[in-house]
Design a protein around this nucleic acid. Structure first.
Lengths: 306, 306
DNA sequence: CTGAAAGCGCTTACAG
DNA sequence: CTGAAAGCGCTTACAG
């Protein structure tokens, strides 16, 4: 450094006096970097995603990055548009909970060498970094837990999204049930993801009426569990005496509910931290990126509903 | 237009073929506009704010604007930093739920002629557009409702934030109680905003033990109501027989709770739409901005807890 | 009317 | 080592 400390101090003082702030836009135009990342989640109103978003933001702020959030509402078209829109905003990287047909957009990002990490779900055929919970194990353990507690007719409530994380959860349930010789396809219900909560409740009312011998139920996502509780209440079933309940993904209402609801809790902190770590790693090394696929264990939080 | 339709078509075709997308960064640098606004809320994890954010985003997207969300967590220092950070990102306007001492930052924005609209709360001394619910009226009506239902010893649970919207709610309660000759300062509890939920529950347990004749309670925000329900459950009080409950701001858990909780619901849609309208108005007319102060009516949603 | 040039505020390769 | 110039990709005032 050929600049004397005195001069440095002088310049800094003037900068401070004039309240000089570098113009981020100009810096971005020149460097091609925006120090921002795009975070595409399913629905920022769902606490699962808002808490995830919060931790991701805190983590990435440590590296001086800003976050653009957006929600797909599981709409493929909207999701593809969001990717394009964030691309146009020149984000330096992506964190995405993809929708079912978003593989084309993800492939485009890979071709463009844009750093990207998928969370919560992924595409089995696509070579791209992702961080997800061990959904199979979570569902298997939860189902086994119900079986060990003496439940025999355990229902499964899934959606019809077809995304791999939901399929794995369903497979975890099915394998546990088959192992105990309790599997019965009739006990599985697939709700239409895009139907209203009222419609979901209706579907479940009908389902439980047709399967009135059910003594346990596993909900594969918190919004299904919440709607399910309302359906079960309408049927006048006693929890856990008549019916034991476990739901995926924790939610404030599950704690407040009486009886409180047992859940398969996702390790949100771990997921967020690992995701940011993988993304930062990709953003630092401009090429020869190694894809990393991370599987984290969930945790069964036992409450009064089982 | 001196350009023939044929040439226009040709150029557009080439643009499409080459997948030309204007570089937003360059456009921003040249025009000084980013077509983005900063949305500073208290806590994006609270459904009240996440739903508000969602509607605001949908509204402002119609005008081709993007939203930067951030949460203050009611921290004055963090809030001031967020304003500076968004300023540096050259957002074209601000929508802010201010913290108690954010008036300095707001004044700075006004001096810089940056469009800004406050929501949910405001500064009585500051001439700046805002959109808020009629908090006084909401609390007054809710309290009157409890009184008309025969409740006499109605407790009030507020926080100690000192923000005007909370003071107005408290005043609405006090005036209603005084009018009915039921006012008793002992029935008011101020929780520390920054304490944990457990601490809030502890404070409330103690409070209700000291005021065991209470037959009604008004919670001035949803997170206090949620903690309050847990405290009331620990005390073994029957709702609404022993104690009638009304809380401000709706929440999924209030609907799911058994008995379901009566709330003073804020007109989120209206608030969001009006806010965007005011902001767009300011952003269009570069000068002589007229400040508008909008007061919207809340709605008492009567459920089983009263 | 049209097309070329200037300039937004930075960073960095390069000439001296 | 240092300082001036080029250039990121646009928009718009201006010369022709």
């Amino acid at each position: 450094m050929g600049i004397s400390a005195v001069v440095i101090k002088k310049v800094q003082d003037v900068a401070k006096r004039l309240k000089y702030r570098p113009n981020m836009i100009a810096t971005s135009l020149r460097t091609g970097k925006t120090r921002s990342i795009g975070l595409i989640v399913e629905n920022i109103s769902n606490p699962f995603f808002s808490v995830l978003a919060k931790v991701i933001e805190e983590e990435i702020m440590k590296f001086g990055y800003r976050v653009f959030y957006c929600s797909t509402y599981n709409d493929d078209e909207r999701s593809a548009e969001l990717v394009q829109s964030l691309l146009q905003a020149n984000v330096d990287g992506f964190i995405i909970t993809p929708t079912e047909k978003l593989d084309k957009s993800i492939e485009q990002l890979l071709e463009m060498k844009v750093p990207v990490v998928l969370i919560d779900r992924y595409f089995p055929g696509l070579d791209v970094s992702h961080v997800v919970m061990d959904n199979y194990e979570g569902a298997y353990s939860a189902t086994m837990f119900l079986i060990k507690r003496g439940r025999r007719k355990i229902a499964l409530i899934n959606n019809n999204s077809g995304m791999v994380q939901m399929q794995l959860r369903e497979k975890g349930y099915s394998d546990a049930m088959k192992k105990a010789n309790l599997f019965d396809e009739q006990m599985i219900l697939h709700l239409d993801y895009h139907s209203s909560e009222e419609q979901k409740i209706e579907e479940m009312l009908l389902f439980f009426k047709n399967n009135n011998s059910a003594d346990g139920v596993l909900f594969l996502a918190n919004y299904m569990g919440l709607a399910g509780i309302l359906a079960i209440r309408k049927l006048g079933l006693k929890v856990p005496d008549d019916l034991a309940i476990i739901s995926f993904d924790d939610h404030y209402s599950f704690i407040l509910h009486s009886p409180s609801i047992t859940v398969v809790e996702q390790p949100l902190d771990e997921i967020a931290k690992k995701t940011v770590e993988l993304l930062m790693c990709q953003m630092k090394s401009d090429n020869n990126v190694v894809f990393e696929k991370v599987l984290l264990k969930g945790k069964l939080v036992v409450r009064e509903s089982v």
